[in-house]
Simulated scan of single mutants.
Amino acid sequence: MLPEVTATRYVTPLREGGSLPGIVEADDLGTYVMKFTGAGQGRKTLVAEVICGELGRRIGLRVPDLAGIQLDPVIGLGEPDQEVQELLKASGGLNLAMDFLPGALGFDPLAYEVGPAEAGRVIWFDALINNVDRSWRNPNMLVWHGELWLIDHGATMIWHHNWPSAAASAAKPYDASDHALARFRPDVASAAAELAPLVTEELLTEVAADVPDAWLVDEPGFENPDALRRAYVEALLPRAASIHTRIVLGEPTPDRPSQAPGWLAGRLAPAAPKGEGA
């Protein structure tokens, strides 16, 4: 079960994210990046954040600590931005918090060297969870205290947007040609040998249990939240054993159409050069 805190002050929005996460302070005196149930992407992005974030941490990757965070929308009454006010009003109750890493810098492959072993571990992990949002366009990694940290796992496990085809989707290869770490000669074979044995049925069951029931109810085709949790385990367990044989590392293709879900397409699109569209 995730630890739980209560938001006490909304500090500022983070407009780099498509779901408009915000920095908040909580009753444990901690500062968090908060992701909202009322955001347009829906609660499945929070489910993915929990399962994949906790899985990454438990196999030894650096992912900021996660917590459930209770939100009373009244804390947004003084927020001048109408969009933020509406988001807070739509997100009363339990949301997701990620530990804020003060002073962290966005990953820049030209400024930060990653060894083949670490690059291989990250790419293997992203292949396991089918992360479509760690490309050179949008690395979703931070450098904090000289180390690489992984963030933003809401666009993973895209099969859970269409459970009837989940088994076929989870069996597909993972194209890492445009991955932000592809240039660092990733040692995927060694990563698989190290990490795949750690991804056991027991571990996957534990991380799925961290997802609150409230984010799993009313999923078509599933009787209850535990049945849905089991589906995540059954999708990830066989993939862990064999995905390293289906990772494709080719030449990056900047003009390639996005493979992300439709709601993510705008977020992945390259920004227009300054001066265009003015």
Rank of each mutant, 00 (worst) to 15 (best):
P3I: 03
E4S: 14
E4Y: 11
A7Y: 06
T8R: 08
R9M: 00
V11F: 06
V11K: 01
P13D: 00
E16T: 10
G17F: 07
G17M: 03
G18K: 09
S19Q: 05
L20R: 06
L20K: 01
P21N: 03
P21K: 01
V24A: 00
V24M: 03
V24E: 00
E25Y: 06
A26C: 14
D28L: 08
D28E: 04
L29E: 14
T31R: 14
T31F: 13
T31M: 12
T31Q: 09
M34L: 13
K35S: 05
K35R: 09
T37M: 07
G38T: 02
A39E: 13
A39S: 15
G40Q: 13
G40V: 12
T45H: 07
T45D: 01
L46I: 12
A48E: 01
E49V: 03
V50Y: 03
E54P: 12
E54M: 15
L55S: 03
L55F: 10
G56L: 04
G56I: 04
I59K: 14
I59L: 14
G60F: 04
L61C: 09
L61V: 13
L61Y: 09
D65V: 13
A67Y: 13
A67V: 15
I69Y: 10
Q70L: 10
L71Q: 07
D72E: 14
P73S: 07
V74L: 11
V74D: 13
V74R: 14
G76L: 04
